[in-house]
């Protein structure tokens, strides 16, 4: 009996065929493609499937509102490959250029063709002092405590407990919060809870623009 291959397996094979260079780490792939001279197709040994050890995680694209499902292939903390989730009815395996490049936000391939963290990511708490022309690295505990002090100072200096008619308004107009349609529902729910608890009424985000 012929072995049945599932749609997912099929796509995995297909992914290897079409996006081979992106998935293969070894040096063998580079000279093979580099020697594509004289209308000869390159031949080279694909070797073992390099994503076979990868962890697969179902996710949803971080960009437009289509909500394409995707599968993140990762090894350790590096993203190896992203492909459309064939089961997700929104996209049934297909993705646009942005979605396909989603891995770039975490992992890029450096000059030595090694996967490394995208070096433009902010990986430390950064602080810019008044008048300064540079960022300073700080730790979380310091930043959280300092932010809380700033919030308290601004809020308390500008707090309106009651308006001119004596109505309890519990607000500060000197703090604003803007964002974000790029954050999850649960995150946004916490943002607005905390801002409203502090009396912030200047709340807005992408939906306005």
């Amino acid at each position: 009996m012929k072995q049945k291959i599932s749609r997912r397996d099929f796509l995995k094979f297909l992914g290897l065929g079409t996006a081979g260079t992106a998935l293969l780490e070894g040096a063998t792939a580079i000279p093979a493609f580099a020697s594509t001279a004289e209308d000869k197709l390159p031949t080279f040994d694909l070797g073992p499937l390099k994503i076979k050890k990868a962890k697969e995680t179902a996710s949803v694209c971080a960009f437009c509102g289509c909500g394409c499902g995707l599968i993140v292939y990762s090894e350790g903390d590096r993203v190896i490959h992203i492909e459309g989730d064939p089961d997700n009815p929104n996209n049934e395996g297909s993705m646009c250029s942005k979605g396909i490049a989603l891995g770039d936000a975490n992992t890029i391939v450096d000059k030595n063709r090694k996967r490394v963290v995208n070096n433009r990511r902010i990986m430390d708490v950064l602080y810019r002092a008044p008048g300064s022309n540079k960022w300073e690295k700080k730790d979380w505990d310091w930043a959280l405590a300092e932010i809380a002090k700033r919030v308290k100072k601004t809020r308390d200096e500008t707090f309106e407990e009651k308006d001119e008619k004596g109505v309890t308004v519990n607000r500060t107009q000197a703090i604003c919060h803007i964002g974000s349609a790029s954050c999850d529902n649960e995150e946004n729910y916490l943002f607005q809870k905390m801002q409203r608890a502090m009396g912030v009424i200047n709340i807005d985000h992408h939906a306005r623009l």
Partner: peptide
């Protein structure tokens, strides 16, 4: 336009 602009609006990130 954004992956969760529907959701962030649902959560009331609006004045």
């Amino acid at each position: 336009g954004e992956s969760n602009v529907q959701g962030s609006t649902d959560q009331g990130i609006l004045y």
